[in-house]
């Protein structure tokens, strides 16, 4: 057995440069005993370190849930903060197993970067933030403005499209990180700060005077954000997608981290029994244990709990928004787990 291992390691070294690891991310993660997850690391509500240095936020929670489902322990995640520029290369090169970094799903990214998007953990839209004393009440009044933006994002493209469509001129001021865009905006390098509305809300919580700024009413784009995996590993893609689906289904079925043990002992419905692994072979089909979803819900909470814990504190209410469940007027709709 040991000689097998030595031989295969040697073979791996020999062929490492000529062959890529086509195979299973799942096996790699299990062998390593930890999930490597690419996050932003600087956006409160999505992924930002708390006082103890642990990454918190709705993006980070997705990673926690995947680790819980795959390894049975939500703490077995190594978070790797990435800039917008680095993120796709980090995923394609295998530096991370999953990218959960408020990343917008677009055709170019899906079709040309060797990536697969799974589902959405937050549905966003781009907006503009200005200082109140500028006296602007609509984005259509921004002709000639300087705009701080994170370079190399879809945000930059939407902004260019929007101004072009409306025959307005503007000066972009592009920074590398969202923190720098905030510093530039606060320091007066630009009149307007643009990003996804959730990020604007998050950034305003870090400003010296959050009451001196306001969001303009326009939403100029669709920004479906969600976890991304490498192409060519369908099993891993299913695991990531269904972990996210399980969190959403759990909310729909009323399973929370508090009542999940009771529900597992006495499933109120066949759906609950299947998701918690009491009935059916769902976990095994994914290559996981039968309690994969139970672990994720128990350790991380359902989607609603995660949202309340991460995004609500930055001031974005969920009730009635697109990020609510389809049963309550939103558009979050997860396929059944059966």
């Amino acid at each position: 057995m040991k000689s097998m291992k030595v031989a295969s390691t040697a073979a791996a070294v020999v062929f490492a440069t000529s062959q890529i690891a086509v195979a299973a991310t799942l096996d790699d993660v299990k062998a390593r005993g930890e999930l490597r997850c690419g996050v932003s690391g600087g956006v409160p509500g999505f992924s930002a370190p708390d006082d103890s240095g642990r990454m918190q936020g709705i993006d980070a929670a997705v990673c926690d849930a995947i680790a819980a489902a795959v390894l049975g322990d939500s703490s077995k995640v190594t978070f790797i903060p990435l800039t917008a520029k680095e993120r796709f290369t980090a995923l394609a090169s295998g530096e991370i197993d999953v990218l959960s970094r408020n990343t917008t799903h677009t055709l170019t990214r899906e079709a040309s970067l060797g990536l697969n998007f799974t589902y959405y953990n937050y549905i966003d839209g781009q907006g503009f933030m200005v200082k109140k004393d500028l006296g602007v009440s609509s984005a259509l009044e921004l002709d000639g403005a300087s705009i701080c933006v994170q370079a190399g994002t879809t945000t930059e493209l939407n902004m260019a499209d929007y101004f072009r469509n409306n025959n307005m001129d503007f000066t972009p001021v592009g920074y590398e990180t969202s923190t720098q865009t905030r510093e530039g905006f606060e320091g007066g390098a630009c009149d307007v700060l643009t990003s996804d509305k959730s990020q604007l809300a998050a950034l305003s919580t870090e400003m010296a005077d959050p009451d001196a700024v306001m969001l303009l009413p326009e939403t100029i784009s669709k920004e479906p954000l969600g976890p991304v995996v490498r192409q060519g590993d369908d099993q891993w893609m299913d695991i990531v997608a269904f972990t996210l689906y399980a969190l959403i289904n759990a909310e729909e079925l009323g399973i929370t981290s508090d009542n999940v043990d009771d529900m597992k002992a006495n499933p109120p419905s066949p759906n609950v029994a299947r998701i918690l692994g009491v009935e059916g072979e769902g976990g095994e089909m994914l290559g996981l244990s039968s309690d994969w979803a139970y672990n994720a819900i128990k350790q991380v909470g359902n989607y609603g709990e995660i949202y309340a814990r991460t995004v609500e504190p930055i001031g974005i209410q969920r009730a009635g928004s697109v990020n609510d469940l389809w049963t309550r007027g939103g558009i979050l709709y997860a396929p059944p787990i059966r």
Partner: peptide, 24 residues
């Protein structure tokens, strides 16, 4: 320059263009 937002070759080409096209 990318730290302060000046648009030279690294910011424009190895930054924005790379990220928009993925042609690293």
């Amino acid at each position: 320059a990318v730290a302060v937002g000046f648009e030279e070759i690294v910011a424009l080409w190895a930054g924005i263009t790379l990220n928009q096209t993925g042609q690293a």
